[in-house]
Nucleic acid binder design. Structure first.
Length: 261
DNA sequence: AACCAAAGCAACCGCCCTTCC
DNA sequence: TGGAAGGGCGGTTGCTTTGGT
């Protein structure tokens, strides 16, 4: 008598998403917005469950995502927030615009946890590991990790103040509001593309458009030849999944989403 | 060059909470 | 007010990549 599954998994595709699936999902969401995740795969023509679509969008396709490694400052903040909130990753993620809970969780589990353990700090309680264990770690601490130890002490001191450095709220709000505007259907992609084509092509040598590259275009104008007719479609079909999203995200970092300003 | 182990990360699972009827 | 449905969240898995031998 278990709970009813979120969806009928029979006939549904699982595993890594293909570029085509990404395109379909992006295309659908950018055209229609998000109303009910359960209906998204059906309407978008995807053989995925709604949850899977939601996860893919939130963790990977969302245009306001910030990619790349975590900075020292971000790591510090994560540690402080974790000390206060525990494993409430979504709450922690809400302090990092453009970061997902999954990303932070992964980073915590793979790196920060180890770093803290190495420094003799229990990643769960954020207190020094018990004497016995601590002795074992001292050897390491005395050798290579001395600097890190001091760094963590500083973090600890900061934590005691119970003051967490707030993110740039203006930036966060701007990103969110523009993203909401986009989902609400008011996002003028055509205008955005017109404004930003040069920016994109200028700083993304890795910008790979395998599909549209058949003509070896040298500029974005060439890459989007019929942009005037159906810019969204052109854009979605032309992007090569995450490589192009790197470009997109880079633009987002440069406040390209602040169109409403 | 080949193999193995570790690390990193995307995706899935299942429970919990909220909303709606 | 209670039950069902849907979404959100945290934990876990498993595949891919990277580094070492």
């Amino acid at each position: 008598m278990g709970r009813k599954p979120c969806c009928d998994k029979v006939g549904l595709k699982r595993g890594p998403w293909t570029i085509e699936e990404d395109h379909k999902l992006m295309n659908f969401i950018l055209n229609n917005g998000i109303h009910c995740w359960r209906t998204v795969p059906k309407l978008a023509g995807l053989l995925r469950c709604g949850k899977s679509c939601r996860l893919r969008w939130i963790n990977y396709l969302r245009p306001d995502l910030k990619r790349g490694g975590f900075s020292e400052t971000e790591e510090d903040q994560i540690i402080q927030l974790h000390a206060q909130l525990g494993n409430r990753w979504s709450k922690i993620a809400s302090h990092f615009p453009g970061r997902t809970d999954n990303e932070i969780k992964n980073h915590w589990n793979t790196r920060i946890k180890k770093k803290l353990k190495l420094l003799g700090i229990d990643p769960v309680t954020h207190k020094p590991i018990e004497q016995a264990e601590e002795k074992g770690n001292k050897v390491e601490l005395n050798s290579s990790s001395k600097e890190e130890s001091l760094e963590v002490k500083a973090q600890d001191d900061q934590g005691k103040k119970q003051e967490i450095q707030e993110p740039n709220l203006d930036e966060t709000n701007d990103l969110l509001s523009n993203f909401e505007m986009m989902l609400g259907g008011n996002f003028d992609l055509e205008q955005w593309l017109e404004q930003e084509t040069n920016t994109c092509s200028s700083h993304t040598s890795s910008f790979s458009l395998e599909e549209s590259n058949s003509n070896n275009p040298s500029t974005m104008d060439d890459q989007f030849p019929s942009i005037q007719q159906d810019p969204l479609q052109q854009w979605v079909e032309s992007v090569d999944s995450f490589l192009s999203w790197d470009c997109f995200n880079q633009l987002a970092e440069e406040n390209i989403f602040l169109l409403g300003k």
